[in-house]
């Protein structure tokens, strides 16, 4: 589904990704772990072209998205993204946040879009908040709305960029729960997170990144119980 081939990314002099090659198959739940600055978020952001790779190619279902001629917007319609800081639109109600893109991009009529939005709100347990504005919501609620907003575009792949890092500890659970539910429904997911419990429970594969490379990967059991690389061992020993 996603082929990442020798992707490099530099910000000026700073090399953040130094050659990433990876293949993600449909239905996989890939969790990226690693220390800050290791390139996890950058890799995720390259996949929906919020960052343009400096070199290398990324192919999604046969479309080379790193080709400058490709229609970025069409590619992004198939990818949902959830951000660390939610990035809800503060001037729009919850309902409008969710229905904006389906109406403007997918040209759905308002009725259709609202119906779908209500369904999604029910799924994340916030059907009573459709008329609320983001400022009235807690962090956990905002992030669940952000997930619903991404799902409203019917993406094939969901990307999560540290979705629980900006949350108060007592709100992490509700967001992880929504993500677990999504995973159980068969969604292809890539998740950058520091929640090792979630990685262990939900991931079909864990990638450990450090210094711009994928150092080690495997099933959660392999990576967490029996890490082979020294750097993985030292990282895990510090956080587990």
């Amino acid at each position: 589904m996603i082929y990442i081939n020798d992707v490099h990314k530099s910000f000026g002099e700073l090399k953040v990704l130094k050659g990433i090659t990876e293949h993600i198959v449909p239905g996989e739940k890939v969790v990226l772990i690693g220390p800050s600055g290791s390139g996890k978020s950058t890799l995720l952001r390259c996949i929906n072209l919020l960052e343009i790779p400096s070199s290398g190619t990324i192919t999604i279902d046969g479309t080379n998205i790193t080709d400058p001629k490709v229609n970025i917007n069409k590619v992004r319609e198939r990818l949902g993204m959830v951000f660390q800081h939610f990035n809800l639109f503060p001037h729009l109600s919850v309902m409008e946040n969710i229905t904006l893109a389906p109406i403007k991009v997918k040209k759905q009529n308002e009725e259709q879009a609202k119906e779908k939005a209500l369904e999604l709100l029910k799924r994340v347990g916030l059907e009573d908040k459709s008329d609320a504005y983001p400022i009235q919501l807690s962090g956990g609620q905002k992030q669940r709305i952000a997930i619903a907003r991404a799902l409203a575009m019917d993406p094939e792949i969901m990307l999560f960029d540290e979705p629980t890092s900006a949350l108060d500890p007592e709100m992490v659970g509700e967001v992880l729960e929504a993500m677990t539910e999504l995973a159980e429904g068969g969604m292809t997911m890539m998740v950058v997170t520091h929640e090792m419990g979630f990685a262990r429970e939900v991931a079909s594969r864990v990638l450990f990144m450090d210094g711009g490379y994928i150092i080690e990967q495997g099933t959660p059991e392999e990576v967490f119980e029996n890490p082979q690389n020294e750097r993985t061992q030292s990282f895990l020993s510090k956080i587990l």
Partner: peptide, 14 residues
Amino acid sequence: DKGQTEAGRSLGLT
């Protein structure tokens, strides 16, 4: 905030 643009673009808006 730059995140607003990123959120919009990530949803497929031009």
